[in-house]
Amino acid sequence: MIAVSDADARLVLRCQANDAAAFNEIVARYKNKVYNYICRMVGAVADAEDLAQETFVRAYMSIHSFQSRASLNTWLFRIATNLCIDYLRKGRRAKAMTATPCREITEEETDAVSDLPDERFEPQRSLLSKELADHLDRALQTLPEKLRTVMLLYDVEGLSYEEIAQIVDCPLGTVKSRLFHARAALRAKLAPYLDERWSP
């Protein structure tokens, strides 16, 4: 973790010295993380990619003001979060994610893996995962954006309470409280499904 932060810090220093290759490296390192987060935040594929690009354009424009008070990871998620909230508040909700799903691993890519013999391979299980994932996406979109932000950052992106507090600009206690309410709300929306599939 420290090594990653050091590498990020070096990349930022090179960017601040107008090294374009360093910025490309930052994009390569974070593009999928940022895009995955934005997809779940806004739930629209075309706009998600546009917002992800806008995140990196803004990072590029303000890289000189980055002072390492936060990690590069936190900084990028902060930019992305602000863009998503602006987008959602402007009401520019595009097609639902279920209508035009974000790009996942392609069939060719999965075929390359599934050609290998795997005793755990079960077509029904894959279908179930897809069905659950779609249900989960729909349930996520019904959560208030403040709860969704904290939940995605903690449970999907693996950020700490402190990092999330920096991103959403609120006290630690608020982050913990929002996480609890988000989990409880999502559980309530998925409860019938969980009961049906996973009840002991």
């Binding site: 593009k31 998600a48 992800a52 996942e104 659950l132 996406d137 999502l186 559980r187 996973w198």
Partner: peptide
């Protein structure tokens, strides 16, 4: 138990990837 399942489901949901022309567009 249900909350744990929810968190587990969320964490294991398939991750999205950008399109191949993302870098070129950027």
């Amino acid at each position: 138990n249900e909350m744990r399942q929810t968190v587990s489901l969320l964490a294991s949901a398939p991750r999205r990837e950008v399109s191949p022309d993302f870098m070129a567009n950027l």
